[in-house]
Amino acid sequence: MAGGTRFRRVAVPLKALLQRFAYVFLASAAVALMVVGQVRGTWVETLRTSVTDLVAPVQNVVARPAAATAQMVDHVQGLFRLYQENELLRQENDRLLAWQAVARRLDGENQALRTLLAVAADAHTSFVSTRVIADPGGAFVRTLLVNAGERDGVAKGQAAVNHEGLVGRVIEAGQRSARVLLITDLNSRIPVVLESTRDHAILVGDNTDRLKLLYLPANVVPAPGERIVTSGQGGMIPPGIPIGRVTGRADGQPVVEPFVRWNRVEFVSLLNHGPAGGREPGGSLR
């Protein structure tokens, strides 16, 4: 009985204190979580991948109506522009047929020269295509969640691409979901080359839809319209993936506008590049 009174004598004021400063305690706890998460990131990553694995099936269903709406809007817009689009496609087809002839000739020439010079074969690339189930980052980070994970062969560091170009790279891989850090994120650093001059640089995101080109050689000023492609340095991202076009300068640095339209990324392919990557040889146009 006396023990109970003593306990109450301590517990009651303690409870009142906790209630009074609950928000201060909780806010401090959140800050402590952030610090611990920064210092010991592995458990945060494990927790995150477990949560995303758990949520992935739900999110896959929740995201479907949005995807369906997008398709419907596209469909209706397409109906209105049918004639114009047809004409444009016919012109583009003519142009592409000409390019195809050039590409076939160059491919043949390339193969012949490679054989002649005994060039070591490039690393092969295999890929997994998957649906984007969440685009949750907001103003603080730019990431996507995709509906494929380690059990599908996804691993950290793999490049994510779509038909328009490089989207980002995998930074966390769970069993059935993975997180892709977009090239526009503040923490994204991609080794690139200028397509025509072959000058190397690093492409840096800043959470907006524009990218910055850093560490170019001092005397190089890329012309507006210059295409930027991946350099393949580092080995995880295959070389030659298109990223964007130089549009101008800001703060003394060239600004790159990416080819990918961020609100239209429904599916991405995750590339498994490297010696262990490929199951089948790729590269030939024939």
Binding site: A22, Y23, L26, A27, A29, A30, V31, A32, L33, M34, G37, Q38, V44, L47, R48, V51, T52, V55, A134, P136, G137, G138, F140, V141, T143, L145, I171, E172, R179, L181
Partner: peptide
């Protein structure tokens, strides 16, 4: 209740990929 708010924030951090604890802090604030 406030602890639930904090847990919801932590859940959003896991899903959004924000620095862990950021949304937990913001929702509590």
């Amino acid at each position: 209740p406030a602890p639930a708010v904090m847990l919801i924030g932590a859940f959003q951090d896991c899903l959004a990929g924000t620095p862990f604890g950021l949304y937990a802090l913001l929702l509590v604030v």
